[in-house]
Design a protein around this nucleic acid. Structure first.
Length: 288
DNA sequence: AACTACTCCTGGAGGC
DNA sequence: TGCCTCCAGGAGTAGT
């Protein structure tokens, strides 16, 4: 579930509450979710202090003392919630199920970090796809390299020229699967791919080789603005494939049969590249 | 190199 | 209410 904007929003929230806290104990209910990638066993986390949080694409990196780190990927349904000793939420983010207000630990809470101020950081994941790797700091780069991540779309280096260059090499690939390919750009998932394709005035099946300069600049602007707005103005609220648009966002994803915000034509849902795909047949003609 | 299908899982929604 | 099928925001792997 969580894509770049959700993970970045979560990172910013946790950055305000976790740094300086020391891990007191660790409870792992589902062993496969905790991977010893050279850092050690879960019990070895005791006594390590959290120094800060970073993000790369959809990966959240929790830096620890003694040159160690936890690398977290929430995949489809992972959720992190930090609560004080009284159960009051300090920071939260990720998949909205279980509801953020639900009592924790939940039956799907698989990892709990108990911290020195008696607050707890809960990793809950109803589908068990999420992973936490415990790794030496110097190993983070290698771990992420394995994912072959493309550029950060909100990074300074992601210019229209960079996009043009990458598109030139993958120009025959349809646009939506390309946006979802983490080696093309890091961090875009199914929701924001639909939003970007719509904002770019393209269709999921558009091929980059057909783009002129204006189309390319519009796609570049769409990638940056859709993700930037989600980070600064609030992430998408989507539950079970249904959107609850706030401030007109999302514009297409999860809005099947509802009127397009631009032209009032009902949004259609199709399947493209194996993924549920939402488009406006008027704003995005020639599709399907 | 670049497609597709399948896989890892649980749970919510909708049809009957 | 119960049972069934389908679908869900990710990504690695295997086969073509």
């Amino acid at each position: 579930m969580p894509e770049l904007p959700e993970v970045e929003t979560l990172r910013r929230a946790l950055q305000l509450t976790l740094p300086g806290r020391t891990i007191f104990d660790v409870r792992v209910g589902l062993p496969k979710m905790f991977v010893d990638a050279g850092g050690g066993e879960p019990a070895d986390l005791a006594g390590k202090t959290i120094s800060g949080l970073r993000r790369r694409a959809k990966f959240l990196i929790v830096d620890l003392s003694e040159d160690l780190a936890l690398v977290v990927h929430l995949r489809l349904a992972g959720q992190l919630v930090h609560r004080d000793p009284n159960g009051v939420t300090l920071a939260e983010g990720g998949h909205p199920v279980p509801a953020f207000g639900a009592p924790l630990p939940h039956k799907s809470t698989h990892i709990t970090l108990g911290l020195d101020d008696e607050s707890n950081l809960y990793l809950t994941d109803i589908r068990q796809f999420g992973r936490v790797w415990y790794v030496p700091r110097r190993g983070v780069k290698g771990l992420l390299a394995g994912a072959k991540l493309g550029p950060e779309p909100l990074g300074r280096g992601f210019t229209a020229a960079v996009l043009a260059d990458r598109l030139a090499r993958r120009g025959r690939a349809p646009l939506k699967p390309l946006l979802l390919d983490q080696s093309f750009i890091g961090g875009v998932g199914n929701i924001y791919a639909d939003e970007i394709v719509f904002a770019a005035g393209q269709t999921p099946s558009s091929r980059g080789e057909s783009f002129d300069g204006a189309a390319l600049r519009r796609l570049h602007r769409a990638i940056r603005s859709v993700l930037h707005r989600a980070v600064t103005e609030g992430v998408a609220e989507i539950l079970n494939g249904k959107a609850r648009p706030t401030r007109g966002f999302p514009k297409v994803h999860g809005r099947a049969d509802q009127p397009c915000f631009v032209c009032a034509t009902p949004i259609i849902k199709t399947r493209f590249g194996g993924r549920g795909t939402y488009t406006c047949p008027t704003c995005q003609p020639d599709y399907p």
